[in-house]
Design a protein around this nucleic acid. Structure first.
Lengths: 343, 343
DNA sequence: TTGAAAGCGGTACCAG
DNA sequence: CTGGTACCGCTTTCAA
């Protein structure tokens, strides 16, 4: 059985396609008016056939889709879900839908996803990019077509952006650790990306923090790695198996920090007495780890909501100058950081 | 600037719309043949305008969307993301896209999402339902229209289904705990749903396991709660603050178990010496908790892949009888379960 | 080798 | 009050 169309409904109700359309769109209140009896006949036919208007055809006609596209870097980091959740909340409250895609940390997928989303006549696009440059041209096009495009990121942008910055948080982190007496501070710097800016704010704060105490950066205390918990685990073992291991480790995000904590636990070292740990994001489980994780919170849900608001603002007023909403980061001190007990 | 259409390209290249279509769809190899020179002119025009064919119009014409819809219950449980990840992998490998929606644990949203997905001419639909009955009619319609619909769930179904069962796992759990000497076993039974069957398999195994040892079910050891970590935390406090607290707690999923572990840690009780914990799902962080969580693994990624395979199978052969792929569950013993030390 | 035109499923204008 | 019809952007058959 084929999907029923307007024609089927019209036939069954014994009216014309136009009439069906009128009834369904409640244009009966406007200029056109339709007998209650006809109306009922149509509605009954709709019910009988289980007719649902074809969204594609509607979009083709109207030029709008009532859909916002959202691209996240990958599905393995809860921080991105928080963002997706925020977007979903806000977008749904406006009666729009979200079409979510993941770039799977792959530049080709990222490009493909942006293109796919664009080809769908999405009404607006929220992008959390990892490989920025690849999609630059696509974004230009979208902007020229007056499609709302909002970035979620850390670097200022010419387009609308829901921006956050780890800078303040990272500075707080350094201050916190230095106050606790830490001097050998490791950094696990795992970013699944070639995007040059990603994480830089945290790296800079790290170096400057050390500098402010007259310390030089010991490059052997910096570990680069991927994005999985397991890679965090491995990076941590590299760090703590050194002759002079760090007394504190800064980890670029909570997921990696979970791996780091595991590595330390397995060596029967105590957190925070032997090693302190701080990271970034504040994903949901962070507060429930043992001990609870000290981390720099970035409110993902707020980021997602902010991005959506920017979309709708531009939808209403396409000629606005580029907008920015800033979501600050903030150090949440929990149980994984403590004073240096022994050097 | 408007989005460029085929007409714009045709004009710029000085050819007709059809020619553009031919070039873009490589029909040049078939019956139609086009001068290399014309071809190049068209391609150049496409490039210049940044033309991308309109997916809606294409779908309207072709009747296919190259898109699979996926509905998950909510965005806060990593288990669902594992499933989504599996779906994404498989679907993308076939050159299709995934449109993901979340029901936000809300029956209205669930219904709305299914309807929206259906209205989009999605080529196939993968559903992880919480409030089954509400969408029953929609599914019927889809099936009648020969749209592939695949369920992911635990109860057998008349439609295609990627099925798992916690039963075997739950039985293993009971065996494991009883062998370790546990007799007072608590159950935290949090399901964010009114769907009658959800979790039942685990409840049954629980009762039967106790029965097999000649024990009766102590209803005060069963706690019902919601789906958040925090609700798991609260349910656990109810349990361990009892006069005769359980020596082991079975938790319906890992997210809740994280909250349970926290509650126990906060009371300075030891896991597993004072209280053992087992749960279900085996989300990514489970192995990295402190101690690592004993849990019944259900391979979400495999579930997602299986569901996708069922979709494609039916797409190829719509008249197949209902298919089922079964993904077994399996107890993974880690560090949160141990022998009873004191009663 | 290229172009004209029908139609996919709706919407909305205009005429009856 | 209702029906005819042009059009949204693209594919594809048929004719030139």
């Amino acid at each position: 059985m084929k999907r029923p169309t307007q024609v089927d409904v019209a036939k069954l109700a014994g009216v014309s396609r136009a009439t069906v359309s009128y009834v369904l769109n409640d244009l009966t209140d406007g200029y056109v008016s339709i007998t209650e009896e006809t109306r009922q006949r149509v509605l009954k036919a709709v019910e009988q056939l289980g007719y649902q208007p074809d969204a594609m055809a509607q979009s083709l006609r109207s030029g709008t889709t009532n859909t916002i596209g959202l691209l996240i870097p990958d599905m393995h980091n809860p921080h991105y879900w928080q963002i997706a959740y925020g977007v979903e909340q806000e977008v749904r409250s406006k009666g729009f839908d979200v079409m979510l895609m993941s770039a799977s940390l792959n530049p080709d997928h990222e490009l493909h996803s942006v293109q796919t989303l664009a080809r769908r006549r999405i009404d607006g696009l929220i992008l959390l990019l990892t490989f920025f440059d690849h999609v630059h041209k696509e974004i230009e096009h979208l902007v020229q077509q007056r499609k709302p495009v909002v970035l979620i990121g850390t670097s200022p942008s010419k387009t609308d952006i829901a921006r956050t910055s780890f800078k303040e948080g990272a500075v707080e982190v350094m201050k916190h650790l230095l106050e606790l007496g830490h001097r050998r501070i490791g950094l696990i710097y795992g970013v699944g990306t070639v995007y040059p800016d990603q994480g830089t704010d945290r790296l800079i704060a790290y170096r400057q923090g050390l500098q402010s105490m007259g310390l030089t950066t010991d490059e052997s205390l910096i570990q680069y790695c991927g994005t999985t918990i397991d890679e965090g685990y491995k990076a941590a073992t590299n760090l703590i198996d050194q002759q002079l291991p760090p007394t504190a480790i800064i980890v670029i995000n909570d997921m990696l920090a979970i791996g780091v904590m595991r590595a330390i636990n397995e060596r029967h070292l105590n957190i925070p007495d032997d090693v302190s740990i701080v990271s970034f994001d504040d994903i949901e489980v962070a507060a429930y780890l043992n001990p609870p994780l000290t981390t720099v919170r970035v409110d993902g849900e707020a980021l997602g909501r902010a991005a959506s608001q920017l979309i709708f603002k531009r939808l209403e007023n396409p000629t606005l100058p580029p907008q920015e909403i800033f979501i600050p980061s903030q150090l949440i001190i929990r149980g994984t950081t403590g004073e240096v007990l022994h050097k």
